[in-house]
Computed example of a mutant assay.
Amino acid sequence: MKTLTAADAAARTPRPDDIKAVPVRHPGRWVAVAVVAVLAAMFCHGLLTNPRLDWNVVGHILWDPTVLRGLRTTLELTVLSMAIGLIGGIVLAVLRLSRNPVLSGVAWLYIWVFRGTPVLVQLFVWNFLSALWPRISIGIPFGPEFYSWQYNDLVPLFTAAVLGLGLNEAAYMAEIVRAGISSVDEGQSEAAASLGLTRGRTMRRIVLPQAMRVVIPPTGNETISMLKTTSLVSAISLVDVTRAGQDIASRTFQNIPSLIAVSLWYLFFTSLLTIGQYYIERHYGRGTSRALPPTPWQRMCAMLSALRRPVASGGTS
């Protein structure tokens, strides 16, 4: 009697029918999309048809010379404050990680004070500091003075705003930079020390460039936040874009159009900063993955090309 081999048995076994996969339906998603679409349509319809909201007034306020001058002040404050915050944050982070307990303690005290008090209070302090020191002088400590200036002449309103925002930002950037430095493997510093590099050169050439991958994303968020935080300077009577909108609203009683115009400027520059942050993160993330993520333009082109492809017939007879 002939015995069946495993191959013969497998050949005689009938082939099972193909599994007909049925995609999982998600009715809840379509309901949510419908609800969001209806709410968005109602909101847009209300904005466009509300007789109390004159979009021509919004356009006039948007390009008003006072608003444009305030916008320039806002951008200058953002750039200068972030520059002070970034440089000060790097210095404070290095001091915070120093082996010298005095330097480390001073950096910790600075971060504790400036992170623990509101930035609005700090702006008021810098604005009214002349009540404590009407004159600022240079000379020998506890000795004669060589030069002196009035505080209000040395620190005008714009300078007080830059100092208040920038020094407060330095405390937050210090913790961001410290986290980035701590993320670099200690073996990098040990290898640099074995090659004879000093601690300062190791920090500049090896540690900080590698820490940028961790530092860049929160720094971009801090820059976007700083752009909006500059609106607090209106409390010390500095005319930024927010204060310019408030002044126009107080003269014309067009409060909502003024707020919309100011918000549109903030949204525009926030969008530009978001795009810039994306490309900077993409640049510093080249070594973390084999393929870089597609840019928004590449994603849009891929989506358009996918829509142009002919739809394949679904199923065979």
Score class of each variant (00 low, 15 high):
Arg290Tyr: 07
Val215Asp: 01
Glu76Lys: 12
Asp18Phe: 03
Leu120Asn: 08
Ala160Gly: 13
Leu195Ser: 03
Thr13Met: 08
Val119Met: 04
Thr117Asp: 00
Arg96Thr: 00
Gln254Leu: 08
Thr252Glu: 07
Phe142Met: 00
Ile90Lys: 02
Ala191Asn: 07
Trp133Arg: 07
Gly196Gln: 11
Phe253Ala: 07
Leu195Tyr: 06
Thr223Arg: 03
Gly187Asn: 09
Pro217Trp: 03
Gly287Cys: 11
Met300Ala: 14
Met1Asp: 08
Ile19Cys: 10
Ser263Ile: 05
Leu167Asn: 05
Leu4Asp: 07
Ser130Leu: 06
Arg115Met: 07
Leu197Lys: 03
Thr73Ala: 15
Val214Asn: 07
Arg308Ala: 01
Arg308Phe: 06
Leu292Arg: 13
Val33Arg: 15
Tyr110Leu: 00
Leu267Pro: 12
Val38Met: 06
Ile138Arg: 10
Asp17Pro: 15
Ala6Met: 07
Leu109Lys: 02
Ser263Lys: 10
Gly164Trp: 03
Ala37Cys: 11
Glu145His: 15
Arg115Phe: 05
Phe128Cys: 01
Asn255Ser: 09
Pro51Ala: 03
Ser250Glu: 12
Ile136Asn: 02
Leu39Arg: 06
Gln122His: 04
Trp112Asn: 02
Ile216Thr: 01
Asn56Ile: 04
Ala170Leu: 07
Glu169Met: 09
Ala161Met: 07
Val91Gln: 08
Gly287Leu: 11
Ala9Trp: 11
Leu95Ile: 00
Ala32Gly: 15
Ser313Glu: 10
Asn221Ala: 07
Asp8Gln: 11
Phe146Tyr: 07
Met42His: 14
Thr73Val: 15
Val31Ser: 12
Gln277Tyr: 02
Gln188Asn: 05
Ala161His: 03
Thr49Gln: 11
Thr66Glu: 15
Val79His: 04
Asn221His: 10
Ala249Cys: 04
Thr295Gly: 03
Ile280Ala: 15
Glu175Met: 09
Thr202Leu: 03
Ile206Gly: 02
Leu53Cys: 10
Phe142Gly: 00
Ser225Thr: 09
Ser98Glu: 04
Ala107Tyr: 02
Ile19Gln: 13
Leu4Gln: 12
Cys44Arg: 14
Thr66Tyr: 14
Ala41Cys: 14
Val38Cys: 11
Ser271Pro: 15
Ile138Ser: 12
Lys228Ile: 01
Thr223Val: 14
Cys301Gly: 02
Thr78Phe: 01
Thr242Glu: 03
Gly88Lys: 02
Ala32His: 14
Pro296Gln: 11
Arg15Ile: 10
Glu76Phe: 04
Ala261Gly: 12
Ala93Trp: 00
Thr5Ser: 11
Ile248Trp: 02
Leu71His: 04
Gly105Asp: 05
Gly116His: 10
Leu77Val: 08
Ala83Phe: 10
Ile90Ser: 03
